[in-house]
Amino acid sequence: MALIEIDTLSVTFDAGDRRVRAVQEVSLNVDAKASFGLVGESGSGKSTILRAICGLAPITGGQVRIGGEVVKSPRSKAFSAQVQMVFQDPYASLHPRHTIDRTLSEPLAIHGIGDTDARVMAALSDVGLPTSFRFRYPHQLSGGQRQRVAIARALMLKPQILLLDEPTSALDASVQAEVLNLLARLRDERGLTFLMVSHDLAVIDHMCDRVLVMQHGRAVEELSREALAGARMQTDYARSLFAASADRMLEG
């Protein structure tokens, strides 16, 4: 049984006078400890799937099951100890008026977990930040350091599943490499399951075993990593996306 099962998921918003069908009947399964990628252009609904899983967008059709159980609305505290998310923009995802210490100890306070000092220190060193950063404010950190804090925050509750919404697209190339390496290391150490969204095929290819190509809220094609690297796509859209990323090929 897959750890994450998404069954004909639809997400529809009411935006003023019109209805936006952001996601239409998308199904996918992610096994435990596997990494699954979602690619597509802006507006393809890839991020909305992540937001629907964790309750930030409404599920208007179909089902999301985590470990075989249909998710409840609103999400329980047990859910938040199981599934966490890392956002795209590290400048917007940390509270600007909270120190790193406050940001990292907040999940512990919510779940009534003690031993705050030791856990915060451990979390900082796990993501490769010096513990002297503990009482800094986000604006005293670089983009890459902020994203490390965001990852540390997501791991405070020791979840099994990490939803990654373009975690490196706002970062410089060298910082992207560091953050991707960090994510890969944490995945191996802790046996995490990743569901990752990106517009960069190379990043998805580097991190994921399987990938779903999306367009206009619909699933276009699901590919294994080998099929992606070998350019064995069945649909025109997936092929055009691949062609536009040609400079991200190995020999490029």
Binding site: A173, S174, Q176, A177, E178, L180, N181, A184, R185, L201, A202, V203, D205, H206, M207, L228, A229, G230, S245, R248, M249, L250, G252
Partner: peptide
Amino acid sequence: QGLLNCLPRIGGNRGPLPGL
């Protein structure tokens, strides 16, 4: 060179990316 090397590539190996 470092900037070029630290980019992931489609079909590349999945070991850690070289840092800068």
